[in-house]
Amino acid sequence: MARQIFAFIRHKDGVVDDSAYEFITAANKISSGALSVAVVTGCGAQLDSVCNEIKSSFSSVWKIDNEALSYPNAEIIRPVLTKMLPGDAIVLFGHDTLGMDLAPGLSIKMDSPFISDVIDFENIEGSELRLIRQEFSGQVCTHVSCDISSGAIINVRPGSFLPDESKSAGGEVIDKSAEAGNLSSKRRFLEIIEAEMGDIDITKSEILVSVGRGIEDEDNIEIAKELAEAIGADVSCSRPIVDAKWMEKGRQVGTSGKTVSPKVYIALGISGSFQHLGGLKGNPFIVAINKNPRAPIFQVADVGVVDDLLDFVPELTETIRKS
């Protein structure tokens, strides 16, 4: 019998997250021809429209409808999944803020191994699944093997698998709501507080000079500002710069910051973590200046300069000013 692989679908305001279609590719890489089952929790009409949208992409769709699931609270979803999934299930989540919240604990409750932040699957030999992960923000990769005979809980990195939008599975929606069981929780969702808008809106900028931890010191930010001024750019940054309170949150590019789509993006001392790059859309022309020739940013940049930015950038600015 073909292997069953479950995929947990994220959605918001009735819109299906891109990860749903990436899971199909991922599932086929784990086991070609696997039957993929979408698991969708939520409530009401929005849940129905999500299920209908994805049903032609999966072998079947489990719909779990309950008022208590209207907001995706990991502490409520986990026991529901523990109760409903077969003990040896292979289950895919996105390595995002919900997947990180939900999946590690689920692996304990299911007594299955947990594999985090997978970027590629290689093959299965017997009961050993081989896959690829990264460590140290992408500076090195590892091959990992995992015994999946008792199932596995797997978080896959958003954007690592090409979305499969062929909609060629023709599945049906199965209403599993009655099996959900107890839906109370010791963690109660209260509200969402929206991020504050900053002094400028970097999502509208055409050129961004973006500062990372490689800037080393708050005073050095001036170097980036001067370059930005010389070329008519706005200044943005990576997360550690905001954490250090050197710039405001509104200027942070990345999954937990802003999604920007400039024409040109100049990354100064940014390593290129997936959470940072996740905020860069629209295929900009990327220039990376970094002193480490192996920084992952060079894999996505169009042009790279391997140098100390504190020396290089002032010279660059000076030349541009003169011309």
Binding site: V140, C141, H143, C146, D147, D302, V303, L316
Partner: peptide, 28 residues
């Protein structure tokens, strides 16, 4: 149950065009 087999450097893939030469040449 989860075991690391080995470490390797990611394939450069398409990668950036790394500018080389003297500082002036690179800047130009």
């Amino acid at each position: 149950m989860v075991k690391k087999i080995d470490y390797f450097v990611p394939e450069p893939g398409e990668g950036a065009e790394i500018l080389e030469g003297s500082n002036e040449e690179i800047i130009e």
